[in-house]
Design a protein around this nucleic acid. Sequence first.
DNA 1: ATACTACTTCGTTGATCGACGATATGCGTT
DNA 2: AACGCATATCGTCGATCAACGAAGTAGTAT
Lengths: 114, 114
Amino acid sequence: MLSEPTLAEKPDDARLAALAKALAHPARLRILALLARTPGCIGGDIVQAVGLAQSTVSEHLRILKAAGVIEGQIDPPRVCYALAPGALAPLAALIGALEAASSDPACCVTPDKT
Amino acid sequence: MLSEPTLAEKPDDARLAALAKALAHPARLRILALLARTPGCIGGDIVQAVGLAQSTVSEHLRILKAAGVIEGQIDPPRVCYALAPGALAPLAALIGALEAASSDPACCVTPDKT
DNA sequence: ATACTACTTCGTTGATCGACGATATGCGTT
DNA sequence: AACGCATATCGTCGATCAACGAAGTAGTAT
């Protein structure tokens, strides 16, 4: 008998949660904003702009790369980072759907008790 | 002398990061999806749909409320939950801007070395 | 008053995160 | 070969997260 899918049966949720987690730190948002206005940023420039230790920034960049949000092209000894096209589209679609649903005026209709 | 703002001087980043963090768990995404298609959900229904312990779901609901993503209307002894209109608009705007920037073909232009 | 329901909070546990300095790695230059 | 540069990784520490069962809280019904 088929039951309603549990949490573990919705891989999309885990993927979207991972995307959201990549954005869930101010430093990573700052890095993304920098890459948005300066395509092709060098790691050292990012370290300067963010104001954290080089190893910390490197870790944040690693997290963003692992989530597929940015790409890094090696130009030894530097790495040239850029936003990955379309990487956030699934999250954009999710949030768009939630925003559309939240505008529905039928929220919180309490059942008639008479 | 004014320097480039550091991380701590961009409160928007922290707020947007907090919004993203609220979405950074599959269970919370599942709850939001449920509320999107069933406005006005009772806590007990959410517990059944998510498949976690009641106290765990309560904690996730608390996190979503604290982030302002959902609202809860008390109808004793139940609570009626719904998506908060416009709560994710700032995150939608951020992601939209990043997506627009990532489509820019000027990515990773390496400086001419001659 | 008590009993029940639904939800919130607490305490615990193990896992994960984010900061850093120190160190390792890979590449190009000399 | 050695050196320098830029980046990646490691180890550590304190903080935070997410799961649970148990206990607490608030409102309603009897």
